[in-house]
Amino acid sequence: MTQGAGPMNRGGGPMGPGGGPPRGGPGGPSVVTAPQQQGYAKPLPGIDEENKPFWDYAKKHELRMQKCLQCGKIYYPPSSLCPHCHSWQGSEWVKLSGKGQVYSFIVARRATNPAFAKEVPYVVAIIETEEGGRLISNVVGCKPEDVKIGMPVEVLFDDVTEEVTLPKFKPAS
């Protein structure tokens, strides 16, 4: 597969970042065979033409989302078309404050994917940013039982590989 160029990831397999040797097919259990030198066995985000800027900014430790140049609304996931007003005039990748709140969350108590075996229990949450955009992330830096809906959180950046940084969230200081 071409590394980092196309929406090939089907949810289980690694989506390779740019460069490096191919790392197996697009699906399923190939995630557990990620090379040791990478040191990171978990799935990586499916990066494609439209969401690449989000991940490029994340690598620079910036949380940015698209703001429509016509209607001014923030939208996510990344897209070429504003889902609110259908503007084709483009968007501005605006920098977000990094502050938000937990809209909902779950506690994963078993590893659906073996790469997460050491993480359980861990928290997956829908984060609503101060600016209104919402995204899936993890809440880290506290016990799962301390996470509450409505809890204020702030972004942190987890450089999981040389190429990929995952924005995550911790309780607001």
Binding site: P7, M8, N9, R10, G11, G12, M15, K42, P43, L44, P45, G46, I47, D48, E50, N51, P77, Y103, S104, F105, I106, A108, T112, N113, F116, E119, Y122, V124, A125, I126, I136, S137, N138, I149, L166, K168
Partner: peptide, 26 residues
């Protein structure tokens, strides 16, 4: 689409059960 599912997987969110659990939790 795969890019959403793949991004969710990066955060350890797998499958319809976990996504419905987010709805149920709310």
């Amino acid at each position: 689409p795969p890019r959403i599912v793949g991004t969710n997987a990066a955060y350890g969110l797998f499958g319809a059960s976990a996504e419905y659990a987010l709805a149920a939790s709310r």
